[in-house]
């Protein structure tokens, strides 16, 4: 019981995830700045931003539903933190592995997006409402290719749990190369999940002035920002667990490799967000359904065929 509490609150739960999220956000911002020939923030900037937001006054709009308004950021953060517990970090099995944890993970990762939608919707501001509608429209576009891309390797491994997949791919490491198209689809689609350029439409600073979060301030906004930063870590960890399941012996070595893997994913994500313009919502939907989904579908078919051949 005490150990479980330690796992949830301190490591690898809230405290570690929060700290790593701040480091992640710093590296992301620094890379983004350096790719633009700028200096970028100092190492404590994300922490300073977080603390500053905590100290600011929290304003709740008059027409907003107060309980839901306060509940949503906490819910988003809780869902992300819960998801992190099911991802293997230093060894090939997560803390609480079970058959089907991949599905639960994906479900938990959908919750923050729903929270963003509801947050925008309950803010009763026009900007927030449009942002909320965009968040939901976007959800239906990127979620399908993302799920398909993450499930394709699972199909090949014939296991719906991350530990099972890791076990399969550690015996057949060459099969990982087959999953490269799925990896590309997942990396691009998760830009939509993380609401980053080119798919940052729900926030779209220059169009919607912050979109779904326009009415959030102070502590509640700090929690939301933290949830977004944590989501970045969790998604990067998930992609690395599915597509790069390498775990050397020993907890420390495993942990080091985990950090390295997530940083590589972060680098790709930071590069992707710095080299493109934000697309329009109908372009985003068209792109996801025209290119990403078929590509993920081809991957699934290929993996099924391959499995048939192997069997």
């Amino acid at each position: 019981m005490l150990l479980a509490l330690f796992h949830i609150l301190i490591f690898p739960g809230m405290l570690f995830l929060g700290a790593y999220a701040l480091v992640f956000s710093f590296i992301d911002r620094k890379l983004y700045a350096r790719l633009q020939n700028r200096r970028g923030p100092r190492w404590y900037q994300p922490l300073a931003d977080f603390l500053k937001l905590l100290g600011k006054e929290t304003i709740i709009p008059e027409h907003a539903d107060k309980r839901v308004f306060v509940f949503l950021p906490v819910m988003a953060l809780a869902a992300v933190t819960a998801a992190y517990l099911y991802i293997p970090i230093w060894s090939s099995t997560s803390l609480y592995p079970f058959e089907g944890d991949l599905i639960v993970l994906l479900y938990l990762l959908t919750l923050p997006t729903l929270c963003f939608f509801l947050a925008g919707w309950y803010s009763t501001s026009v900007y927030a409402t449009i942002g909320a509608v965009r968040a939901l429209t976007q959800l239906f576009s990127y979620e399908v290719p993302l799920f398909m891309a993450l499930l394709a390797p699972a199909l090949l491994a014939d296991s719906w749990s991350l530990s099972g997949m890791t076990a399969y791919y550690s015996t057949h490491p060459l099969y990982l190369l087959i999953n490269i198209p799925a990896f590309l689809v997942a990396v691009i689609a998760c830009q939509g999940k993380l609401e980053r350029v080119p798919f940052d439409l729900p926030e779209a600073e220059t169009e919607l002035a912050g979109g779904t979060f326009v009415e959030y301030s102070g502590r509640l906004y700090a929690i939301f920002r933290m949830a977004i930063d944590c989501e970045l870590v969790v998604v990067a960890s998930l992609i690395s667990a599915v597509f790069l399941p390498f775990y050397p012996a020993g907890a420390w070595a495993g942990f080091g490799v985990y950090i390295l893997k997530t940083l590589v994913i972060l680098f790709i994500l930071a590069l992707l967000r710095s080299i493109m313009a934000r697309v329009r919502i109908e372009q985003m939907v068209a792109f996801c359904w025209k290119y990403l989904t078929p590509l993920a579908l081809i991957q699934i078919i290929a993996n099924l065929l391959l499995k048939g051949v192997l069997a």
Binding site: R34, Q36, N37, R38, L271, S274, I275, M276
Partner: peptide
């Protein structure tokens, strides 16, 4: 093609910042 600026941006990754 998308992401045409990638090479240009990566070239500046390790260069001295302009700011």
């Amino acid at each position: 093609s998308p992401g045409r600026i990638a090479g240009f941006a990566l070239k500046h990754l390790l260069k001295k910042p302009a700011t």
